[in-house]
């Protein structure tokens, strides 16, 4: 079939991380050695799951009221839009997030970091983006935590996000960071994307207009997905 107008744009050089990035040691045995086979998009790549009719379950956008008491930590509002690279909103797509607690510990059996669990915080949420691509979560600011990549390595505070978008190839799972975090300079996961402007896409902005007085700090973060490839100009 004719794929004109349906294909998605290819990532521009340097704007996505590589598969092999030895500074992130776990990539060494998990990165393919052969170059991926380039394949032009078909119906299989440009379609993808839709989530606008409640299939993913009810929205869970408030991570601070999932237990009996309030979680410890700085209460924050994290909000933004899902856009494509042409700036068009992406409505009706599932946004999933997970994070550690304010002490830097995940509610996960694999996490054995010597920091307290918070009985009032699980750290999981999901929403479906609105007609204008917007989404919003209420949570607490996650803590930094150590990891064993290199001795005395610490991950900057971050929230994991997974977003689908309209097609199988627009799917992205990523992490949102906080502005001014001194750990970003030392974090190989953050640093793995070569292009500086692309990396900055991962850092939320503090937004005083999103903050709510006497209640919560506001961070704004737009998620940008691959857009459609430019429609070829017809030869005259």
């Amino acid at each position: 079939m004719d794929m004109t107008g349906l294909e998605f744009a290819r990532p521009r050089p340097g704007t996505q991380p590589p598969t092999l990035y030895p500074d992130y040691a776990s990539t060494v045995k998990r990165a393919p050695r052969r170059a991926p086979v380039r394949f032009e998009h078909t119906l299989s790549e440009v379609t993808g799951p839709g989530f606008s009719d409640g299939w993913a379950g009810p929205d869970a956008a408030d991570l601070t009221t999932q237990h009996k008491g309030a979680p410890l930590g700085e209460r924050i509002i994290v909000a933004g839009r899902v856009l494509d690279e042409d700036g068009r909103p992406v409505p009706g797509t599932l946004v999933e997030l997970w994070q550690c607690n304010s002490a830097g510990r995940y509610h996960h059996p694999v996490d054995q970091h010597d920091a307290p669990l918070d009985p009032n915080f699980t750290g999981v949420g999901q929403v479906v983006s609105g007609a204008d691509g917007s989404w919003r979560f209420l949570t607490i600011k996650p803590g930094a935590y150590p990891w064993r990549n290199t001795p005395n390595a610490w991950r900057p505070a971050h929230i994991h996000f997974g977003i689908f978008g309209p097609g199988f190839v627009t799917r992205v799972v990523t992490q949102m960071y906080f502005p001014g975090d001194p750990l970003l300079a030392f974090d190989p996961i953050y640093q793995s994307t070569p292009d500086a402007a692309a990396r900055e896409r991962l850092i939320a902005d503090y937004d005083p207009n999103l903050s709510e007085a006497e209640w919560a700090l506001g961070y704004r973060w737009d998620i940008v997905l691959r857009g459609r490839a430019a429609t070829p100009v017809e030869a005259g």
């Binding site: 521009r12 042409d86 700036g87 990523t174 292009d195």
Partner: peptide
Amino acid sequence: KLIPTPAQTV
């Protein structure tokens, strides 16, 4: 065009 958000490990 806007730069798409880079992926980061799960």
